[in-house]
Amino acid sequence: MKLLTLNFLTCAIKTCKTSPSSFPLHPQDAELEIVESDVNMAFLRNILPRLMWEELRGITRELGLPELPETAPAAEDLGEPSQVAKDLHRLLLETSIREGKLVCGNCGHEYAVKEGIANFLLPGHLV
């Protein structure tokens, strides 16, 4: 599961959605892998406004990855592609969680990730 996917996910429990601490989900015991792909420049430029940068910094810190700068790069920094672009591509699309869990910061619920697929199904009574 790609790190960028975490930018769009939250706790599946209804009552958590209104709580700011349900996003982002926190990776734990994560086994990472790198799955290489080519850089798509239009994507890198146009994803910037959608990135929750502060949360992304938190996730990379929790995963023990190199610290991200305080502010997101600007489209002009991405070049054709620059090192900044390559690093961003590596982080968002190539770095993947193979095994581990994602934990909600609000309710503590743990969602398992197995073979790269996260399981957000809840036992009947939590829905």
Binding site: F8, L9, T10, A12, F43, A118
Partner: peptide
Amino acid sequence: KSAQTSIFLDVVNSDLASSLRPHT
């Protein structure tokens, strides 16, 4: 076929869209 076609994120095992952030 290529990274220039579009970006595939993931498939998640979930009930409907309940694991997605509101208004995304």
